Computed example of a mutant assay.
Amino acid sequence: MRVLVTGATGYVGRAVVRELRVHGHEPVSSRQRLSEPFLPVDADAVIHLAGVARVRESFEDPLSYYETNVGGTLNLLKALEGQRFLFASTGGVYRPSDVPLNEESFREPSSPYAATKAAAEDLVAWAARSGRIGATTLRLFNVAGGGDTDTTRVITRAVACAAGTVPGMEVFGDGSAVRDFVHVSDVARAFVVALEACSVGTSSVYNVGATAASVRDVLDTVSAVTGRAVDVTWRPAHPGEVRFQQADVSRLRALGWEPSHSSLEQIVKDQWHASAPEPGPGPSR
């Protein structure tokens, strides 16, 4: 299939483009601004990864988040007719729960960013129900590994601290909060599996997660893998902090997907190897 990928040069986008090629598809990058109307899309499918995705920033400027994430998705959907459409959403759309979240769990976004993703999910689902497209939404949990450069993410920040490329990190709470981590290469594979299962007139949703681990688990694993301590400043927990989040991925597994690179140790090792500083020259003679 010829597949248009928005956000193809981004962190997840680069991995998705590689995986598409491995499986015989032809990825085409889109460099068009989401705020502009799209011309009719000359492709069999679209994987929509472009958008803005900083949770804390979204509280400061929610309007621009709606303009880009919702308005941009609308502009793209208007240019489609008869294609498969895959949309990257977030596990942040769910109401917090003490049990693993499945795709039918109640949505209750806790940030403007997550709210824009939930709104765009609805746009995509209604477009599919009309028969205009085939739609699949993938709710990504905490994507990590693969040389990520976004040090607002906990694994990336902790590894960067160990590498000495950032001065330290803040942890809010006692480190017992649990999140679900998944390697970016496993995320890319999920997009390809979902693409091949998608058909026009249908709408599906899949969680993409793999390994539940606490912040302390992350810090301990980074120290064990790198042999270096992580400099942490402990802060009081934010009010209303989500204490536990884990994805039920049985629906995606039913399509044949398995997370093969997403143990916590594998993710940390991969991120460390991709970002550790090069050794300096030996002593002169």
Rank of each mutant, 00 (worst) to 15 (best):
W234H: 09
V249P: 00
V187K: 09
S204V: 01
A128T: 04
S105N: 03
G131C: 01
R243W: 06
R2F: 09
V154C: 11
A162Q: 11
V166H: 05
D61T: 15
V46C: 03
I267R: 05
G145T: 13
A43V: 10
T149A: 14
A224D: 15
L140E: 15
T233F: 05
F141I: 03
T90P: 06
R253V: 02
G13Y: 05
S64Q: 15
A197W: 00
S214W: 08
P167T: 11
G131R: 00
V225T: 12
R243E: 11
E67F: 14
V187D: 08
R132D: 00
V215G: 02
V143C: 11
L34H: 14
L80E: 01
V222G: 06
P236T: 07
S260M: 15
S89N: 04
G209K: 04
V55L: 10
A43R: 06
V187H: 09
L219H: 07
A88D: 02
D44P: 10
L63N: 11
P277I: 05
G82W: 01
A43H: 06
L63S: 15
M169L: 13
A158I: 10
P62S: 13
V182M: 03
P236C: 10
A135E: 04
G24M: 09
R14L: 14
D217Y: 03
P96V: 02
S97G: 05
P40H: 05
I155C: 10
D42N: 13
Y66S: 14
T226G: 06
A224S: 14
L63Q: 13
R54E: 10
L34Y: 15
V28K: 08
T152W: 06
T136D: 03
Q245V: 06
S260P: 10
P62D: 12
E241W: 08
A125T: 07
R84M: 01
S110Q: 15
P281Y: 11
V166G: 04
D42P: 14
